[in-house]
Design a protein around this nucleic acid. Structure first.
Length: 293
DNA sequence: CGCATCCCCTGCCTGC
DNA sequence: TGCAGGCAGGGGATGC
């Protein structure tokens, strides 16, 4: 669910209370997330200072002062919220004090900053791991990840090289975290629409002979970077159960051009197409069959 | 190896 | 109103 812009928004929301703070106490209310929590999870975190809060693809990375990294993934339905011990409350909490924890509040971090950070995840596709910083790049989950789409190193040449031999569709290739890391169903659809490329085209259209980038590759890289940057700027998208760590709602979902808009007119000026939904590799794709070729 | 399919889990929406 | 079925932003395991 949360894709790169949402995870980046969460990172920015958590940084003020986590960065430089010491984890005073951890309550693991459920250990059966995507994978079982590491042994002695709470004990290993207690007393650790958070020196950096980073992101790689859709993973949040809290670097600790003992050389370990707390790796956090939101899965489809994970979210964080922050509560301040004696701080401001939202108006709703005055009227109706909320019970201490929801059934899906799985991990609670009490921090020296005075904040409590709560990880909530109804579907439990999210995960928390502890990995040694020096081994992170070689870790199974990270070693095959493709480039960060907003890095300068991600360009048309890189993308073309990753796709030149692929027989699969553009939609499937862009969803593959080994090709480029951090896109999900929404931003793949949005980027393909902006680049006027059909999600059904073979991924190899991005490369000419010898893996040189085509015009399509250049347009697509530009579209990917633009849509991600705009979405981050807008604070991500708020859909169903995802909310920002600061409780504010992301606004980008109002700017989707095709995602979840089947039956609507294509928003491209002068395009007379109608947005269609189709299923590719088991997931919905939204696109305009007229201007996306 | 690449690729497609299935599955993990809960909640919400639709249609009967 | 109740209930069944379909769907949801991810991604690992499996089988061809």
């Amino acid at each position: 669910m949360p894709e790169l812009p949402e995870v980046e928004t969460v990172r920015r929301g958590l940084a003020p209370v986590m960065l430089g703070a010491t984890i005073e106490r951890v309550e693991a209310r459920r250990a059966d997330l995507r994978w079982p929590l590491p042994a002695n999870f709470a004990e290993r975190l207690a007393g650790r200072r958070i020196e950096r809060l980073g992101r790689r693809a859709k993973y949040l990375l809290a670097e600790l002062d003992d050389g370990e990294v707390l790796v956090m993934h939101l899965g489809m339905s994970g979210s964080f919220r922050i509560s301040h011990a004696g701080g401001a409350r939202t108006p709703g909490e005055f009227l109706m004090p909320r019970s201490k924890h929801d059934a899906h509040d799985h991990i609670v971090f009490e921090l020296s900053s005075g904040a409590t950070v709560i990880f909530n995840d109804p579907r439990r596709f999210g995960a928390m791991l502890l990995v040694r910083a020096s081994e992170l790049e070689r870790h199974k989950l990270f070693q095959a990840l493709g480039p960060e789409p907003l890095d300068a190193a991600f360009d048309a040449r890189t993308l073309a090289r990753a796709c030149w031999a692929k027989k699969t569709s553009l939609k499937a290739a862009l969803s593959d975290q080994r090709v480029v890391a951090g896109l999900g169903n929404i931003y793949v659809c949005e980027a393909l629409h902006r680049a006027r490329l059909s999600p059904r085209r073979r991924a190899s259209v991005l490369a000419a002979r010898a893996g040189a980038p085509t015009g399509a590759a250049k347009a697509l890289v530009k579209a990917i970077k633009a849509v991600l940057a705009e979405a981050i700027e807008a604070g991500g998208s708020t859909l169903r159960d995802y909310v920002r760590a600061d409780g504010e709602l992301g606004e980008f979902q109002h700017r989707f051009r095709v995602y979840d808009r089947a039956g609507e007119n294509c928003p491209r000026p002068r395009c007379k197409g109608r947005i269609r939904r189709l299923v590719q590799t088991g997931r919905s794709t939204f696109y305009c069959p007229v201007c996306q070729r």
